[in-house]
Design a protein around this nucleic acid. Sequence first.
RNA 1: GGGUAGAUACCGAAGUGGCCAAACGGGGCGGACUGUAAAUCCGCUGGCUUACGCCUUCGAUGGUUCGAAUCCAUCUCUGCCCA
Length: 390
Amino acid sequence: MKSPEEQLAILKRGSAQIISDDELLAKLRLGRPLNVKLGVDPTAPDIHLGFTVGLSKLRQFQDLGHQAILIIGDFTAMIGDPSGRSKARRQLTHDEVMANATTFKQQAFKILDPSRTKVVFNGEWFELMTFDSVMKLNAHVTLQQMLQREDFRKRLDAGEPVYLHEIQYPIMQGWDSVMIKADVELGGTDQLLNCHVGRSLQREEGQHEQVIFLLPLLEGLDGVNKMSKSLDNYVGVAEAPEMMFGKLMSIGDTLMARYYELLLCEPVPEIHPMEAKKQLAARLVARYHSEEAAQAARAEFEMRFSKKDLDHAELPSLALAGLPPDIVSVVVAAYAQCFQITKSRGDARRLVEQGSIQLRSEKVGDAKATPAMCAGDVLKLDKTRAVRLA
RNA sequence: GGGUAGAUACCGAAGUGGCCAAACGGGGCGGACUGUAAAUCCGCUGGCUUACGCCUUCGAUGGUUCGAAUCCAUCUCUGCCCA
């Protein structure tokens, strides 16, 4: 086992803020495995790369001999963490949440070591709480403290509603820390207040206060907002290798540097940016799938986009039989059948007229056209989608 | 509970009886250019239609009118102020 000082040095890499280094060092010196808490709300069925920043850090704690405690917020997910949000979340039903939690757990174990992870659901304690104990908890936190939060503040200033159940969220998250006797709580930088509430509740209960270990938030594919399912700027860890590779290749250079730092924990290599990005994409695909899948995804990507060789790429096929012969109808059918995307005829016509639609690498251009289409022909729909006719 | 202001397309925001499928900005999409990126430029952005045009849309429901996003009534939701 590494010395406390060595452990601290390793853990600090890639962190945003630790409250505090000294407290963490003191806890590491206790010589026992620390309870390291990471809370997740299964609001969506699968996790994305943004979330893996926390899981990877948790894994690092595990590798140093500590006890990982993954809290599945089956109860809190129904409220929805208001952190960083400009609107109240839709409340989920318990069934939805539990269904999400199942896949969630499987995916978390692509990163965590299952043999050293304790998984708990916070419904275990919250469902049993009585109203008077809820009131007692509330007595520990003031409205002013809650209003310090930037996201609530912003909503107030913008004249947006802030609901009382949302204000309960930090208190519930804090109580989780008490219930599992957390020594360290991991979270994104937007979790600062929530984690602090945990500390004060622990103090009230006569426990040692948890160390707050904050990690930077990973920006989503747009490079601006944090990665989130609801903004559709995410890369899911369960996504198909080609999809994952393609999404990662679409990011800008600045964001690439960020991903290197937060996901691979190293600087961008001093090579052509294009190659650096391919390596990033390949390594992440390898992490969540396999080395072979990563190489295949890269080869596929290069064939399709770099060499623009759609003829040999693997494409979904579209049966022409029974379709009207005009190009617009074929395009609409291709989106619907091969990609489950509903395009209006107007949209499809626009794509044709604007030159996005290509048949055998030639722009069609004329929405009225009824070009001869044969089995095996490649029909390009837009930047990322194409189908093979059959 | 009382007063008051508001609810417009993916988001923000104009429009206050016909010229409104609804300005403008953002976002999104397509094209050019590139490294498939970014930046830039051009175009598109309710549905059906080759087109003329037709249909549905401005919180909800009714009403006034030849004609309503715009006027009236009721309802729902939200902000702010007062209790």
